[in-house]
Simulated assay, not measured.
Amino acid sequence: MSPSFPKSYKVACSNCNLRELCMPMGLSEAELRYIDEMVGSRRKVPRGDPLFTHGDPFKALYAIRTGFFKTTVTAQDGRDQVTGFQMAGEVVGLDGIVHDRHTCDAIALEDSEVCVMPYDELEALSREVTALQNHVHKIMSREIVRDQSMMLLLGSMRAEERLAAFLLNLVQRLHARGFSPLELVLRMTREEIGSYLGLKLETVSRMFSKFAEQGIVEVRQRHVRILDTVALQQLVSQHHPE
């Protein structure tokens, strides 16, 4: 790890500008102090480095404070399969709860920073603070719903529908964090998008070009501007799974 990235240092959740996204609302000052004490550190993860890898012991959940991650698993043929992209305000590490070991790799797509939440302490605190327990359950539920949506994408959508749904989902999540609902910088490569959507690199590139020709998006390398949100929504809404 580069010496310019200290492994960890102390943070206070009560002063974090992502608190509304990461922590439940309506906590008392005393409860916030408990959480401050529980979140022992932030950890910086340089671009391309793993936050954790498959088989690592599960010790904590990680709330992304800044940056972007991808999660991958190794397919039977040895290729890395992208299973998700995570951004600031979202939590990674839930995969490790079942077997006390992580079942995927989490790789930083840009220089990132996470808040480390030791799971044993989180679990103990959740039993005392009902709002926190409910929040943790909502986070887990959201991941399940996201996995189900992924199965729908891979199971029955055409290539252009998959890409349209992916772009709409991405800008919706970014908009919830205060970013533009029409512009985004793709932190992942076309190849990584293809891996996630079950499409070949050439197909992803062709679909981007097709959307650009139709005036739906404007693409400049990794910068994407959505020109016709309705057209993207119609592509997704016209899909009827068998």
Score class of each variant (00 low, 15 high):
S2H: 09
F5W: 13
K7D: 10
S8W: 04
S8D: 11
A12I: 06
S14P: 10
N17P: 10
L18R: 15
C22G: 08
M25H: 06
G26M: 01
L27F: 02
S28P: 04
E29C: 07
L32H: 04
R33H: 15
E37I: 15
E37F: 04
M38P: 09
M38T: 13
G40Y: 07
G40V: 15
S41I: 09
R42N: 06
R42A: 14
V45Q: 03
R47L: 07
G48F: 04
D49Y: 13
P50N: 07
L51Y: 01
F52S: 01
G55D: 01
K59A: 05
K59H: 01
K59N: 00
Y62T: 02
A63Y: 10
I64D: 02
F69Q: 02
T74M: 01
Q76R: 10
G78N: 01
T83M: 06
G84P: 13
F85G: 05
Q86D: 02
A88R: 08
L94P: 00
V98P: 06
D100I: 05
D100T: 05
D100L: 13
R101G: 03
A108G: 11
V116A: 04
V116G: 02
V116K: 00
L122A: 14
A124H: 08
R127P: 02
A131T: 03
A131S: 03
Q133E: 14
Q133C: 12
Q133P: 01
N134M: 03
N134D: 05
V136G: 07
V136M: 12
H137N: 15
R146K: 10
D147M: 10
Q148Y: 14
G155V: 08
M157W: 00
R158D: 15
R158G: 14
A159L: 00
A159D: 11
L167P: 12
L168N: 08
N169P: 01
L170C: 06
V171R: 04
L174F: 11
H175R: 07
G178S: 01
F179L: 06
L182I: 06
L184S: 07
L184D: 12
R187A: 15
R190I: 15
S195M: 07
G198W: 11
L199E: 09
E202T: 15
V204Q: 08
F208Y: 11
F208D: 02
F208I: 14
F208V: 08
A212V: 05
G215T: 12
V217P: 03
E218H: 14
E218I: 13
E218L: 14
R222N: 12
R222C: 07
R225I: 12
V230R: 14
A231V: 08
A231L: 09
L235R: 10
V236T: 11
Q238T: 09
H239D: 04
H240Q: 10
